[in-house]
């Protein structure tokens, strides 16, 4: 009891002293045991911090303004340190001056599709048992990927399906794996001779669950592939690219994005529209009159508006296998192993 009392009195002192001056502000709230006192102390600290921060930004803005007036170079903007830009140096990152990279690009399995010699034709199927979200997801995938055909899985083995698809001139197979009525894995098999990529699929949001979603048109979409930097990433990117036709219909204004960030590949599907600022400002006339100056500046500025039209999901590469699907005799080009995760700043794609 006694000790507890002593402690609390200490906390009190600390709180009081904190209010008085700066030099005694060494007592951390975590030391204080009384909750009330602790939160008091904490709020004081937080307030001071906020004020300091505001001061800093004000000073920075003032310096910027001054520099602008004087016609000097404004002080450099600080770049926040993120996990991406402090990534571990990697020798496998593709460089634009690499002759071997282009030579291997010219000879790899996707070259025929990417050079538009063949048109991609996709077979979509499922695991043996699927229900609820699985079919809904496949329905949306069919609307995303042009020239995709859904085939019921039945009880066929995947190797048989690969053979079947090879004979029917399909260029890829996409298998949606469902677990507990929730799609959780995606297998992409490039035909006729591999590779096979196995992705973990997570955070799936279907179209109807997206607010203000649009409905996609049947045009061939544009494709955006972001940040596939290493050789492995490059290969995966080319594999994804080979699912889509290489001649997008730009007037359809439909974009499919695969954005890689920290080895997670984010899938988004949008419609966009170009609008000029001018047209928008004509409607509220009073406003236009008020902000006449700003109007003259922004006149004719074109900007794009986006509307998401689902689905939305995240992929993570688990393995890339050489050749078509073969779990038993297959050779892997890349497998994620536990001993590779020794740093959070090491990325493979």
């Amino acid at each position: 009891m006694g000790s507890a009392k002593r402690k609390s009195s200490e906390g009190e002192e600390a709180a009081e002293s904190d209010g008085e001056g700066k030099k005694k502000r060494r007592v951390l709230p975590s030391v204080v045991r009384n909750k009330e006192k602790r939160s008091q102390l904490y709020s004081v600290l937080k307030r001071e911090k906020r004020i300091e921060k505001r001061k800093k930004t004000k000073a920075r803005e003032a310096a910027e303004k001054k520099a602008l007036e004087l016609g000097e170079e404004p002080p450099e903007k600080k770049v926040p340190r993120t996990i991406e830009n402090t990534r571990e140096p990697d020798e496998t990152v593709c460089r634009p001056d690499d002759v071997e990279l282009f030579a291997s690009n010219d000879t790899d399995e996707f070259n025929k599709i990417l050079k538009q010699e063949t048109i991609p034709k996709i077979l979509i199927t499922t695991c043996r048992f699927h229900s609820t979200r699985g079919p809904a997801f496949i329905k949306e995938l069919l609307s995303v990927i042009p020239n995709a055909h859904y085939y019921k899985r039945g009880t066929y083995e995947l190797k048989k399906i690969v053979e079947y698809a090879k004979n029917r001139d399909f260029t890829s197979i996409v298998v949606v794996h469902t677990n507990r009525r929730e799609p959780d894995a995606l297998l992409i098999i490039n035909l006729p001779d591999g590779p096979t990529a196995h992705f973990k699929l997570s955070s799936l949001v279907l179209r109807k669950d997206i607010k203000n979603h649009g409905n996609p048109t049947g045009h061939k979409p544009e494709l955006v592939l972001n940040h596939f930097t290493t050789r492995l990433g490059h290969r995966v990117g080319r594999m994804i690219q080979s699912l889509f036709p290489q001649d997008p219909f730009f007037r359809g204004r439909r974009v499919v994005t695969f954005h890689n960030q920290r080895d997670f590949i984010f899938f988004r599907h949008h419609r966009y529209i170009f609008e000029t600022k001018e047209t928008k400002e004509e409607d509220p006339k009073a406003k236009a009159a008020k902000a006449d100056k700003s109007k003259s500046i922004t006149k004719g500025r074109i900007f794009a508006r986006l509307q998401e039209c689902g689905p939305r999901f995240t992929l993570k590469l688990i393995s890339l296998q050489h050749g078509t699907f073969d779990t038993k005799d297959g050779e892997f080009e890349w497998v994620h192993k536990a001993d590779m995760d020794t740093s959070r700043r090491r990325f493979f794609l």
Binding site: H322, E331, F332, E333, W334, V335, H336, K337, D339, M340
Partner: peptide
């Protein structure tokens, strides 16, 4: 032999 071998 442990050394981040990730391919066949």
């Amino acid at each position: 032999f442990n050394g981040k071998c990730c391919g066949s």
